[in-house]
Amino acid sequence: MLEAHPGLPEFDYIKPKTLAEASRFLADHAGEARPLSGGTDIFVRMRDGVWKDKYLVDIKGLDGTDEIVYDPSKGLTIGAAVAMNRVSAHPDVKKHYAALADAVDKVASYQLRNRATIVGNICNASPAGDTIGACLLLGGALDVHGVDGARTEPLASFFEGPGSTALKPGDVVTSLRLPLPPKGLVGRYYKLGRNKSSDLSIIGVTVVGFPDKRAASGYRIKLALASVAPTPLVVAQVEEILAAKPVTEQTIAEAAQAAMDACTPIDDVRASARYRKMMARNLSQKALTEIWNQLGR
């Protein structure tokens, strides 16, 4: 039974001046300190008594964390403290990374998106994270500042389980980088919740696609699923099927079936595994069909 704290339990708020200071503090207090950006997950979990950290280390304002920059030669860099609304409102995000903009706008509420961040969504590694699928499919990587200095963590190998990632004590993710989008990229996020909007996802389907001469079908179409596996799930078979064979209603149905077969959902308070599996198929089919239409069919 949930006995939530009436307010927030006690902790100390730490405001380091540099990334190095932040990393050192987090490493010195491993297990009892956590980087704070938007706080929308942290505060909820601390109220519920799930997280019991003694220190929250505010990383907002540290090197590069507050910036969102699109460089036509390199791609997009989203600072770890950039609130979601700033991301989806960014004209280059809308233009070049439609799947991400779409996913961001389907997270919770406008107010919450003024605090919540994409990097926070990624670091919390919830299987239900709405924005993670787009970041994965768009080839995202994280800039991480650790006690031993800076490094890059590709998202493809970042998620280890629900809430579990490749991050180590002392790590501060400073930004998310998305490479330049392939020419003609289109994308979409389909979300099914209990309400029409604002709910956590029962299932989320991200699809991106672009014309690709190296593919037999002429198209490269990728799909990721949320809330159907211990980690955000990229279904490689979808890409393979729709690259190898001509994209038709039949191959889309085949790909959607592959998405259904690939996922391993659980029963929880939001939906049953059985329903989730069927929705993985139906919504994948819907999303793939729409992307195919957008690509010019």
């Binding site: 706080g39 505060f43 003024n114 605090r115």
Partner: peptide
Amino acid sequence: MVNGEPVNSCMILAVE
């Protein structure tokens, strides 16, 4: 509103 943008004031620390 914090700096012109609406937020849930239960989800932001006073110190922030």
